[in-house]
Design a protein around this nucleic acid. Structure first.
Lengths: 107, 107
DNA sequence: CGTACAGTTGGATTGTTGTCAAACCATTGG
DNA sequence: CCAATGGTTTGACAACAATCCAACTGTACG
């Protein structure tokens, strides 16, 4: 099991996170990760409507911005949201974005 | 007093807002508006380190994304954050961004 | 070992963006 | 009316980004 290179929590930049989340395809990937938790690239990128190399490009953007964590297990790569890191650095940001994407439960 | 064209609240898109906020210059403008409230373009763009035409370009991005409201009074244009609209559409988003930019008061 | 699978990389293309400079437009004050 | 002020537009340019396709790399399974 190997971890790919990621930015340290302190080095996650707000503008880069916002930039990473500002693409519809990436936002969809993030939403899936939020709902289903850790998943492989293939699953995360299923039916996105883009070529798999394009999806791969988006995985890297998300990883380099500090939004997702990627670890390799065998020939699979698992992605997951860096919820805790993001929340420590930008409290409430991810929740509000996910709330808007997934729909907020209203009392 | 004239209002410039703006997107209606329902038409404000999350990805466009995130995109608008993902530029350091625009984020600085938004932070100033958050702190000082309504202000003219000249004041908002003072000492940003970019040419005034570049600043003007950013004002438009922010307006077209639905982040700011611009009204013309005489030869001045006043910008203000669309706090209520944004909060209705994407609850908590603007607050979390501003909190991260301006620093959150911790108890 | 070789084939299939999971994902990345490189190249090409097309479109977008941030920037400056210079010219422009609109409003107001003399 | 003319000049100054406040912003915008246009043109040019370099950098970046999203996309596809094809070729590639690495891992495991038969």
């Amino acid at each position: 099991m190997r971890l790919l290179p990621h930015p340290a929590t302190e080095n996650i930049e707000l503008t880069e996170v916002l930039r990473a989340l500002s693409d519809p395809v990436r936002l969809e990937i993030v939403a899936r990760l939020a709902v289903a938790g850790e998943m492989t690239c293939t699953v995360a990128g299923d039916d996105l409507g883009v070529h798999k190399s394009t999806a791969s490009h988006h995985y890297r953007m998300l990883r380099e911005a500090g939004v997702v964590l990627t670890k390799q297990v065998g020939r699979l790569k698992y992605m997951s949201l860096r919820r805790d890191d993001l929340d420590r650095r930008f409290p409430g940001l991810l929740d509000s974005v996910l709330g808007s994407v997934l729909g907020v439960p209203r009392p």
